[in-house]
Write a protein that binds this DNA or RNA. Structure first.
Length: 159
DNA sequence: TTGTGTTTTACGACCTC
DNA sequence: GAGGTCGTAAAACACAA
């Protein structure tokens, strides 16, 4: 009860407590030292738990962002393919009669929203260059198999 | 009963004021 | 020098097998 009120003891209080408990003042002092140590380690443990939870949430969020990026990359590739086909068809039907300029193609206006920010095709392409396909593949395979490794497992793969 | 893990008590080494 | 933290040994305790 005394420890709840005061983490450290003044000498008069220590002497008083020792007298009340029928103990040596040294025992009271040592008890408070040990009690402070336990209290401190408990606080550290709680702080660690909070940090770990925050960290795990960030890892999961990162996985989702990477998955979203890969989906965009795939969509980009499909769009590019359609664009090339359309341009080839246009060139074939024009038959050298002078068609429209390639730069006027509607495909050049394709954009994507990532994290609330709008990117043009080239920007998305550049960002996608840096993403980890390995991490994404493992993450999606785990989800598909119903054997999601948990945050720790995913984290291990990233680290 | 016993092996094992956890908690409590006590101490020495070192640090700070 | 008094009193603090830190690391650790030993005793006490809890509990599953």
């Amino acid at each position: 009860m005394s420890f709840r009120k005061e983490r450290k003891l003044e000498t008069p209080r220590k002497v008083q407590l020792a007298a009340e408990l029928g103990l040596d003042t040294k025992q009271v002092a040592v008890w408070f030292q040990n009690r402070r140590a336990r209290y401190k380690s408990k606080l550290i443990e709680e702080e660690f738990s909070k940090l770990r939870a925050a960290h795990d949430a960030v890892v999961v969020h990162n996985c989702r962002l990477e998955a979203e990026l890969l989906r965009l990359k795939e969509r980009l590739a499909e769009t590019e393919e359609e664009k090339n086909k359309a341009m080839a068809a246009a060139a074939a039907t024009a038959g050298g009669g002078g068609g429209s300029s390639p730069s006027s193609s509607s495909f050049s206006t394709v954009t994507a929203m990532v994290g609330g920010q709008q990117f043009g095709m080239e920007e998305v392409e550049t960002d996608l260059t840096y993403m980890s396909e390995y991490a994404y593949t493992n993450y999606m395979m785990d989800l598909a198999a119903g054997g999601y490794l948990g945050v720790g497992g995913v984290y291990d793969q990233f680290s």
